[in-house]
Write a protein that binds this DNA or RNA. Structure first.
Lengths: 334, 334
DNA sequence: TTGAAAGCGTTACCAT
DNA sequence: ATGGTAACGCTTTCAA
């Protein structure tokens, strides 16, 4: 592999000049620039990005930590991010945190040890304090789907209260009055917010919130399954169940069928996230759109702007959810 | 950030010695090793991986090119890969090729320009020749889901003929005799193989293969939709349709419902890949398992073994598909 | 077992 | 506009 040194020799110029044309920087005369590029072509020269990184103290790499690489949620997010970075010649180093505190910390450590210039973090288990402390350190980072007031300018989030509100309002508008709710784990802010939105909509319709109609799940499919089952067996009757995410809604669907209910006639089900497979379940699931792809892009823009001082479209920090009506909610029940 | 130099000064040893204990290499006396680690702790020393890479000519990074970062197929593959690499302190640089020749080439170029020590490629659009040429160059790479005989030792593939055979055999065993087939794009080897397996099973049951019952799709959902529709409207009757992947099967399901068919009674549908959402469609889709997660891990092991000379479990190059029976195939039709 | 010193391939500052 | 040269932080001979 040819080095900058050989290029400089062949072109009859100094190292510095070659470097200048590489970074098509500074003032280089057209004549020498041509000489140099010709030499590069002749030698098939490729800059060594590692040497560049060392000398410039900039690795051009940004770390991305997600909970899982699989699953319907992270794919679109990573897509958006990868795309905007590649156009900018930055590269993505990806690690998984598995929603587990130790592994999230390890992942962050790992990314930092890889000399990432910046980090995009989708973390769930690590504490606010940890992140606040981290923010005092070297590496700049932006958070997706997490709000910490001390770090509010670097939190890219969805308005979950509104999303929760929209979901329940839609169900109410279809005439449902007895509505069960399967929440996420309530120590998570997004789970709280979605529930809060639910209550808000209920209140707006003059309906009391009934603890008996609430089941606390964990955002995973299985908890939707058992959630619906326990609600159905132990609670008062309800004609609709709202799930705090699509995975649980899917679990609830399976559960409903096992209970012998025909969907959506005997039970309406509402999801949240608009994960891609919700179109494919049967009946197609009504849900709340979570523009995770756009939010990923925004996180990438944040990094571009804050870490690399690039011009980007104006940064936006909170995104708005939208109702997606499909066929899992029945009208005028009973 | 402390450097190796400061550590050496504090510990009262040379640079070389510090380097030795970092790579807990060579023979270093316990005494000095202790001194050095103590100094490191005191300074909070973290090795600079970029400097290490430059000096050692090893970036400890491996490039992964997939078609898409989202979608049900690549997630599990990336998961398997990330996991085995992180344990080995290697990191993954991910790029997307979008099943497009130019972008795949760009992606590979990009990864190479990032000084990856090795590459894992899931490419579809790039030619065999290109890859053969690439194999003569510096970077070692392994291919997933692609077979090139000249490169057979670095092709990690599924036995698709067998998979296609298994799928059709299962349908035949349930008593179906008129079976339609929606294939992938037939210029792709895997699509060909799956179809070949289909024909083989048919032949085994003494049934002729009927071109009229074949629709060539493109592995995307929409083609399953239109595929079923055109088959249904123009072809002779059939009681089952076998799709060359789950996405198309999902499209076919939607199509069937639009045609007013009740599933699975009036039409049995078979998928391929066992992508995770197949459990959630209704009726749950019978399909062929594609152990993509394991294959990803194997690719990672290949790299570990061939690039980093690490000991790994024995390498396996072709994987076997398995039948997954759910509820989308009806028994004894008509 | 340890140390000295020459790289690794760039960038960036200071001259000219 | 161009060149000289010291970093960048580590690894890796080669000697001792």
């Amino acid at each position: 592999m040819a080095t900058i040194y050989e290029v400089s020799k062949l072109a009859g110029v100094s190292l510095a000049t070659v470097s200048r044309v590489m970074n098509n920087n500074a003032n280089v005369s057209d004549a020498t620039r041509k000489k140099v590029t010709a030499a590069m072509d002749e030698l098939g020269y490729r800059p060594n990005s590692i040497a560049q990184s060392l000398a410039s103290n900039c690795s051009n790499s940004v770390g991305l930590l997600v909970s899982e690489l699989h699953g319907p949620f992270y794919g679109p997010m990573m897509s958006g991010i990868e795309n905007t970075f590649r156009n900018q010649k930055k590269h993505l180093i990806i690690a998984a945190g598995h929603s587990n505190e130790e592994r999230e910390k390890q992942g962050i450590e790992f990314l930092i040890s890889r000399n990432c210039d910046g980090l995009i973090l989708h973390v769930e288990a690590v504490s606010d304090d940890y992140l606040i402390k981290l923010s005092k350190s070297q590496v700049p980072f932006v958070l997706i789907n997490r709000f910490i007031s001390e770090l509010s300018d670097r939190c890219i989030i969805l308005n979950n209260i509104k999303g929760g509100y929209l979901a329940t309002k839609h169900v109410l508008e279809q005439g449902h009055k007895q509505i069960a709710y399967i929440s996420g784990p309530l120590w998570k802010k997004d789970a709280q917010d979605r529930l809060e939105g639910h209550k808000k909509a209920l209140a707006e319709y003059g309906l009391p919130f009934d603890e008996q109609l609430l089941y606390q799940g964990d955002f995973m499919e299985a908890s939707g399954f058992t959630g619906l089952k326990t609600l159905y067996q132990h609670a008062k009757p309800f004609s609709a169940v709202i799930c705090a995410n699509d995975e649980m809604a899917t679990g609830a669907m399976a559960s409903a069928r096992e209970l012998g209910l025909t969907l959506p006639d005997q039970l309406s089900i509402m999801g949240y996230d608009n994960v891609f497979f919700t179109r494919h379940v049967y009946p197609p699931l009504s849900t709340i759109n979570y523009p995770i792809n756009e939010m990923g892009k925004m996180a990438a823009d944040w990094v571009l702007s804050h870490v690399y001082q690039k011009q980007t479209a104006p940064l936006q920090t909170v995104f708005e959810p939208e109702l997606v009506v499909r066929q899992s909610i029945t009208t005028n029940p009973q």
